[in-house]
Amino acid sequence: MTVRPGGLRPLTRTRTGDLAERAIVLALRGCALVSILTTVGLVAILLVEALDFFGRVSIVDFLTQAKWTPLFSSKEFGIVVLISATLLTTLIAMLVALPVGLLAAIYLSEYAPERQRRILKPAIEVLAGIPTVVYGYFALQFVTGVLLKGLLGDAISTFNGLSAGLVMGVMIIPLVASLSEDALYAVPQSLRAGSYALGATRFETSLRVVVPAALSGIVAAFVLAVGRAVGETMIVAIAAGQSPRLGLDPFVPIETMTSYIVQVALGDTPVGSIEFLTIFAVGATLFAMTLLLNLFSAWFTRRYREAYQ
């Protein structure tokens, strides 16, 4: 066989080429494996320790008792106390973050001129980069100290679920706005045109065509936001207090699941003691909640995925 000038490379494999290719594949697979193994390891430790805990404390007590006092001499393990606090702060945060985030996204995607959008969107995303400890002290010093105390006086405690929830909501707005905006912006222009051609206003078009078409993406953003609020630690630890208390009163000190884990982890509880094991039980509960949320999100997104295509 003759090789023409400037012709093709020979068709035979080369040994070095094969080896290099294989090395690259191995390296990539290694990286993937590390992240998977880490996750598996984390879950395994969580479950093993949690099982240890449930060997000593009945799961019925865990689910039914109405007090959370593992750090006291008369111990009760009613997780519902911590869950109620987490629910309260999450609920308040979502009441702020979801509507404001979605409206901001609608504004950015449907109303803002392209130039404004190109400036505002990254600006919003920068907000998401502020360390949560800053938000925590903002909640404690300013929102509680100045705003809420100014408005409500002694009716509100220094530590309370309200300010933690509100500030957490503000912190989560960029996440909701940015992800929802991505979903809205991806809706094909032809759908908007179809709506306008039927005599719809911009608002009607946004609300009745664009938002429903982007629903799966918006719901995914909402679920992420809820997960973020449930797992948020710094703000609630700083501003909501460390008083495990059952109920949804936003004005009193409470303790969320995450603040409890911080409290024990930072304290002097001996490793292996029942007090120490509680953080794994609480952690496993948190994990189960976020897992459920994500399963719901995955199911919903698949069901309504890119409905407009």
Binding site: L191, G194, G199, A200, R208, V209, P212, A213
Partner: peptide, 22 residues
């Protein structure tokens, strides 16, 4: 339009859309 652009809604809701907003 040139390319059919029904809304990602039911057939019924597509037709009713204009009437509803009006």
């Amino acid at each position: 339009f040139q390319k059919p652009n029904p809304f990602p809604k039911s057939i019924y809701d597509n037709v009713a859309y204009g009437a509803r907003i009006n």
